[in-house]
Design a binder for these strands. Structure first.
Lengths: 158, 158
DNA sequence: TAGAATCGTCAATGTGGTTGTCGAAAAGGT
DNA sequence: ACCTTTTCGACAACCACATTGACGATTCTA
């Protein structure tokens, strides 16, 4: 209004991006809670995604999440206590213990994917499909390409 | 709906938003570190912003950040140890101890604002000023209005 | 086969968050 | 003025999530 260009101040951009992220994640977990997964936290969702249907060892999980193997092991402990993963001995390597999704873990993953599709459809309906694609394309252009490294936790506090 | 248009999968949207946020914050702190503030972490930046030039009590800071007054007090302790804030007694209210920015704290805030402007200018140059404004407008439309509540930490883990 | 790398775990520590409690000080109602 | 309620800052205990360093056991490799 008073700004002749109408530009947002610079500090608003990261805040808006975070607000968008947070809004989506909050809605995801509200839905997951309503669908039988009330104990799942955002950090757990990232870990489940990183484990994947093929499973992973604690060390591998740590590499995928960008954290130490010890931290990954503790996260696996918590997910195990919540019933989302189980540990199985590897018959080919006595050192390895594979963290594998339980049926409950798979269910959470399937539902998450479904909910994300619905949320994206909401955004597409509100903004227009093309505007949403533009936004995604713009973000993809401004972020490091192989940014499917899910390492949110711990990064904030250092 | 199928996607003959090559739409992004739904789960990519939050990841892209987070990647954008993280990219900006990482660049901010790389710059801050180069400009004499290597110990400042993302969480600290949020707290400094919430304290502001007018200062705030621990309780008020807690309300602004959406955390308990105890947590806010600990964060103030940490910032005090790093030399970014100081505590002064309130002459009108013997209970209150106002957390106020030191010159170093003000310097960090000023530099942060400057860096954010530069980063936004980079995005505007790469995407086009209008596309960036569209992105910001879209995000503003999809996020709760008064989202200047800086409560990132703790939210993730619950 | 000896040496190096990897796996999972234990231990100690740092940071940031949460309740609950408490005394001191301010504010409010009668 | 007095008593009650609220607010403030602090302390204590605890939890979540990360770190580094060390360790025995196992596997890979030169």
């Amino acid at each position: 209004m008073s700004d002749p260009t109408g530009d947002e101040p610079g500090f608003a951009l990261p805040l808006l991006l975070f607000a968008g992220f947070r809004t989506l994640i909050d809605r995801l977990h509200a839905e997951l809670a309503a669908q039988g997964h009330p104990d799942l936290r955002p950090a757990h969702g990232f870990a489940l995604q990183a484990i994947g249907r093929a499973g992973a060892t604690a060390s591998e999980l740590g590499r995928r999440l960008g954290v130490s193997k010890q931290a990954a092991g503790k996260t696996a402990d918590r997910l195990e206590a919540l019933g989302y993963v189980e540990r199985v001995d590897d018959s080919h390597d006595a050192r390895r213990k594979v963290v594998r999704l339980t049926p409950r873990g798979v269910d959470a993953l399937v539902r998450s994917a479904q909910i994300f599709e619905e949320l994206r459809a909401e955004w597409a309906a509100a903004l227009g499909a093309q505007r949403l694609r533009d936004m995604e394309a713009g973000l993809r252009a401004m972020t490091p390409g192989n940014f499917f490294r899910l390492d949110a936790p711990g990064w904030f506090t250092g």
